[in-house]
Amino acid sequence: MTVASNVKQCLATIKNIEAQLSSLALNSLEKDAQSAFHDACVSIGNVKKDLQYRVLELERLEPQYKGS
Score class of each variant (00 low, 15 high):
residue 49 K to T: 15
residue 9 Q to H: 12
residue 52 Q to V: 15
residue 33 A to D: 11
residue 24 L to M: 15
residue 57 E to W: 02
residue 4 A to D: 03
residue 35 S to A: 10
residue 67 G to T: 08
residue 11 L to R: 12
residue 41 C to L: 01
residue 53 Y to P: 02
residue 18 E to Q: 02
residue 67 G to L: 06
residue 3 V to R: 07
residue 7 V to A: 02
residue 61 L to N: 04
residue 41 C to Q: 07
residue 62 E to Y: 01
residue 6 N to K: 04
residue 30 E to P: 07
residue 13 T to V: 01
residue 9 Q to L: 12
residue 43 S to G: 14
residue 52 Q to D: 15
residue 16 N to Q: 11
residue 59 E to A: 00
residue 31 K to V: 11
residue 11 L to W: 00
residue 11 L to V: 13
residue 45 G to P: 06
residue 8 K to W: 02
residue 49 K to S: 14
residue 29 L to I: 09
residue 35 S to Q: 11
residue 37 F to L: 04
residue 55 V to Q: 03
residue 2 T to E: 13
residue 27 N to S: 03
residue 9 Q to D: 07
residue 53 Y to H: 13
residue 47 V to G: 06
residue 34 Q to F: 06
residue 65 Y to A: 10
residue 39 D to E: 14
residue 55 V to M: 02
residue 5 S to V: 14
residue 24 L to Y: 12
residue 37 F to C: 09
residue 50 D to M: 14
residue 18 E to Y: 00
residue 27 N to V: 00
residue 24 L to C: 12
residue 66 K to Y: 00
residue 26 L to K: 04
residue 46 N to V: 12
residue 58 L to G: 04
residue 56 L to E: 11
residue 61 L to F: 07
residue 36 A to S: 05
residue 41 C to F: 08
residue 68 S to V: 06
residue 67 G to C: 06
residue 54 R to F: 09
residue 46 N to Q: 13
residue 54 R to N: 05
residue 34 Q to W: 01
residue 47 V to N: 02
residue 29 L to G: 13
residue 8 K to R: 09
residue 36 A to W: 03
residue 43 S to A: 15
residue 16 N to R: 05
residue 50 D to L: 09
residue 44 I to L: 06
residue 16 N to F: 07
residue 51 L to M: 10
residue 26 L to D: 04
residue 9 Q to I: 00
residue 21 L to K: 03
residue 25 A to R: 13
residue 11 L to K: 11
residue 15 K to R: 09
residue 41 C to M: 12
residue 37 F to W: 12
residue 10 C to G: 12
residue 24 L to H: 10
residue 36 A to V: 08
residue 49 K to E: 07
residue 68 S to M: 04
residue 14 I to P: 04
residue 23 S to F: 01
residue 5 S to C: 14
residue 1 M to N: 14
residue 17 I to W: 05
residue 20 Q to F: 08
residue 13 T to N: 11
residue 55 V to Y: 06
residue 15 K to W: 02
residue 40 A to R: 05
residue 10 C to I: 03
residue 6 N to S: 15
residue 29 L to D: 01
residue 2 T to L: 10
residue 32 D to E: 08
residue 34 Q to M: 08
residue 22 S to Y: 00
residue 64 Q to W: 10
residue 11 L to N: 05
residue 30 E to Y: 09
residue 61 L to Y: 14
residue 47 V to M: 03
residue 9 Q to G: 14
residue 18 E to V: 03
residue 5 S to Q: 13
residue 67 G to V: 00
residue 55 V to S: 08
residue 59 E to D: 04
residue 41 C to V: 01
residue 63 P to Y: 03
residue 15 K to P: 04
residue 47 V to T: 10
residue 62 E to R: 09
residue 48 K to S: 06
residue 53 Y to T: 14
residue 9 Q to A: 15
residue 11 L to A: 13
residue 3 V to M: 05
residue 26 L to H: 00
residue 20 Q to V: 10
residue 53 Y to C: 08
residue 56 L to C: 00
residue 3 V to K: 07
residue 17 I to Q: 07
residue 19 A to D: 05
residue 49 K to W: 10
residue 38 H to C: 02
residue 8 K to S: 02
residue 19 A to V: 02
residue 37 F to H: 09
residue 24 L to E: 02
residue 23 S to L: 12
residue 8 K to F: 06
residue 10 C to P: 03
residue 12 A to Y: 00
residue 18 E to M: 02
residue 22 S to C: 10
residue 15 K to G: 02
residue 58 L to Q: 11
residue 4 A to E: 01
residue 12 A to T: 13
residue 21 L to T: 07
residue 53 Y to I: 04
